[in-house]
Amino acid sequence: MTPAAYAQTLQLNLTRGVTDVSQSVYSLHMYAFYVCAVIGVIVFAAMFWSMFRHRKSRGVQPAKFHDNVKVEIAWTIIPFLILIALALPATFLLIDMEDTDDSDLTVLVTGSQWRWDYEYFDYDVRYRSNMATMREQVYGNLEKGQNYLLEVDRPLVIPTQRKVRFLITSDDVIHSWWVPEFAVKKDANPGYINEAWTRVEEPGIYRGQCAELCGRDHAFMPVVVIAMEPDDFESWITNEETRLAEQRAEEERLLEMQMDMSELMSLGESVYVAQCAACHQPNGRGVPGVFPALAGEGVSVDPNGIDEHIDVVVNGVRGSAMQAYRSQLSMRELAAVITYERNAWGNDTGDEIQAADIHNFIQGNNN
């Protein structure tokens, strides 16, 4: 195995990537590396040669001078030229990386603790991408899979041979959307939108993750992108639009339905385990001083407490780790998990929250 191939297996160098930009970034990195290596060889060779040739044991006497105009001009001009030689290609590459004009597709990427939302402009498609690695693997109860912590339930899908623009923002804290093989790494800042773009020539699956320390589950926020041929992408986007339209129609139908307590508790428990238990713990006791308890004193049982509880789950709590689940869960799931929290672990309020209650609450706030 060649040294370069061996280094690749150890991931000691930058990823070459699959886009023209990522290849250019790699080439610029190697160019700068070789320039620095040559400078290092010259400097250290001159230093060791001087130490050997002019050592005291040979009786060499040090030269007595205070300055040398020629040397000072040389060590000013040469580094200046080296910096220009590095800065020019880097500048042109940065300009190219920031040029999102003439894109064929725009995707809004929104980070939240700890998952990604994707919304396609010009299409009626929006969904959430969660990590798919099982918690049993995280806790060591199962053997880790090939793509441990780098697998999701809903990957981002983009077409090949098309310029795709990403608008990147956040719902809560600072995240960073990073796909090494695209040479795309942009911070997702709440209240701001950053832009990036890519053009993938060949179909494939490309993985990345959040590259910002965004909270206790930072490691559980992967990015997976599937690049499809343009025709396959159009078929996928059409199927997604149809599926999501049917899902919204089903949700409208469910608004008129009343779930009994057993159904609410069953669905609510599954939603709680998937979305809430990591912070508030499976027993609802939370983490003292970090995440509040939901068991016992954690839930208010007075009439006004229901609206307060709905507000916290639907809209989140600004300035805390409690995120808004309004865009993450269906109204049926929201109703079920709130009902579960108000009746599990001995709370026993008897409150039954229905999807229509969530819908009315949201409509009331919008008005």
Rank of each mutant, 00 (worst) to 15 (best):
L12P: 03
E240G: 00
E201A: 14
T106Y: 04
L88I: 15
R58D: 05
A355N: 09
R243W: 00
T19Q: 07
L254D: 12
V109K: 01
L267H: 04
M131D: 13
L83V: 15
V301L: 13
V157P: 03
N141R: 11
D153E: 09
E212S: 13
L86S: 06
L93A: 09
W75L: 14
I174S: 07
M257R: 14
V225T: 05
M97V: 11
I42V: 15
R342I: 01
A274K: 14
S22M: 05
G111P: 07
N189T: 13
A45F: 14
W197E: 05
D232Y: 03
A196T: 03
G284P: 13
N147S: 07
T100H: 10
H66I: 03
G298Y: 10
V271R: 04
R326F: 04
A87V: 11
L254S: 09
N194P: 00
L156A: 01
F166Y: 14
I77F: 11
T160H: 09
A295E: 13
Y139N: 11
K70E: 09
L108H: 11
E119H: 07
T110G: 01
E352S: 08
I42W: 08
W49S: 14
R248S: 07
A211D: 12
G268K: 06
E263R: 10
V152W: 03
A87D: 13
M1K: 09
S112D: 15
A219T: 11
T100D: 10
D311F: 05
P155V: 03
D67S: 15
V152I: 03
D171M: 11
N315P: 09
P159S: 07
G319A: 06
A63R: 08
Y325G: 04
R128L: 00
S320V: 02
Q323R: 15
D260L: 00
